[in-house]
């Protein structure tokens, strides 16, 4: 479901004329049909935050938010023309204390590189307009609030604006009202155009993934997808095919004594080490040393990230003789070799 937002009803007039919208029973500023919700949010950042949030609470199935309205061009020389239709790129905001909001929000689908600033007050003099002008070339009264709520709710937004006048002392509210039907028609046309320009879905490549036949936990699955993407990015799909034919990988698939979950883990290990060959060498060497000491009931625990040469030694003692034997063996640990392993040798 789409949410279509407007500050004033006049901006939405064409939408009311074209769609058979009926008023919501619970909230009088909401109108809807089977495909969309239209909300008249009122003017100002507080009103747009409050009313957008209310609509979203009432209709939790909203998936995208569109905003339509008029804007004022900020001081000359303005790159904008009166009557120009703009798809907003990024919106900046002003706080009630006439300072700027640090956060900005970018549209999910903008086709232009024109930004907008949402003013805390109506811009009715040149000083005010000049103060806002370095941030963006046009000003409205609601978009930052809508985008802020979308950001919190992790929803995409898009905004279409028509330049109605130059902000400042020349702001002509009555003239803007007189042109409202024309602006509303432009906004409606922009809506129809945006509906018809659905992006082509990305072609999904049919890449063979051997773990489709393994037992994969959620975290293993996430890790596999991440590593697989990493592999394709760093190498290519052909190399992936070669990798799947690597004896180590074939061995995992054919291994009869491995539990399905263990197969996944083995495959993950091989993939990880393949992506960082120095890690593969390190694992091989530390694993050999661990096995040697394990025979003497001494556990060696190396940094699982493979980033630090520090390692832990642990063992149980059953007698003084046992202690002396283990200390003797620990004293023979090849410390300088281990340091070299971590230095890539």
């Amino acid at each position: 479901m789409e949410l279509l937002t407007f500050a004033h009803r006049a901006e939405a007039q064409c939408f009311f004329d074209e769609f058979g919208l009926s008023q919501d029973k619970a909230q009088e500023n909401i109108f809807l049909d089977d495909h969309r919700i239209v909300a008249i949010l009122g003017e100002g950042i507080e009103a747009s935050i409050f009313n957008t949030t209310r609509v979203m609470q009432r209709f939790p199935n909203i998936q995208k938010v569109l905003n339509f309205g008029v804007v004022g061009a900020l001081p000359h020389p303005s790159p904008l023309n009166l009557g120009q239709l703009i798809s907003v790129n990024t919106v900046y905001g002003e706080s009630a204390a006439k300072d700027f909001q640090f956060k900005s929000f970018s549209s999910s689908h903008s086709t232009s590189s024109i930004d907008c600033i949402t003013a805390a007050h109506r811009v009715l003099n040149e000083d005010y307009a000049s103060r806002l002008a370095p941030i963006a070339p046009m000003v409205d009264r609601e978009l930052w609030g809508i985008a802020y709520v979308c950001h919190q709710m992790k929803l995409p937004w898009e905004s279409f604006k028509v330049v109605s006048d130059f902000a400042g002392k020349s702001t002509l509210c009555f003239e803007v009202q007189a042109h409202a039907p024309q602006f509303s028609k432009q906004l409606f046309d922009a809506y129809l155009t945006s509906k018809n320009s659905n992006p082509t879905p990305n072609k999904i490549s049919e890449i063979k993934k051997p773990w489709d036949n393994f037992y994969v936990t959620k975290s293993q699955g996430d890790k596999l997808e991440k590593l697989h993407l990493q592999f394709i990015k760093l190498f290519d799909e052909k190399k992936w095919t070669n990798f799947l034919e690597h004896p180590l990988v074939v061995d995992i698939s054919n291994h009869k004594n491995l539990h399905p979950k263990q197969k996944t883990q083995k495959f993950l290990d091989v993939l990880t080490t393949y992506l960082d060959p120095s890690m593969a060498r390190l694992i091989e060497k530390t694993h050999g040393l661990k096995q040697t000491y394990k025979k003497s009931d001494i556990d060696l625990k190396f940094d699982p990230q493979g980033d630090s040469e520090q390692f832990k030694v642990s063992f149980n003692v059953i007698s003084e003789q046992d202690l002396n034997r283990k200390i003797s063996q620990i004293s023979q640990l090849p410390i300088s070799d281990i340091q070299k392993w971590y230095e890539g040798e």
């Binding site: 990493q230 980033d307 630090s308 230095e343 890539g344």
Partner: peptide, 29 residues
């Protein structure tokens, strides 16, 4: 970017970098 798919790790002091063996291998080579 390929950069985000590099074999990088995040260390305990919030640095993102290659593992020590790879860093040293590259620098020494």
């Amino acid at each position: 970017s390929d950069l985000v798919h590099q074999p990088l790790i995040t260390t305990t002091n919030d640095l993102v970098r290659y593992r020590k063996p790879l860093r040293f291998k590259i620098l020494n080579t």
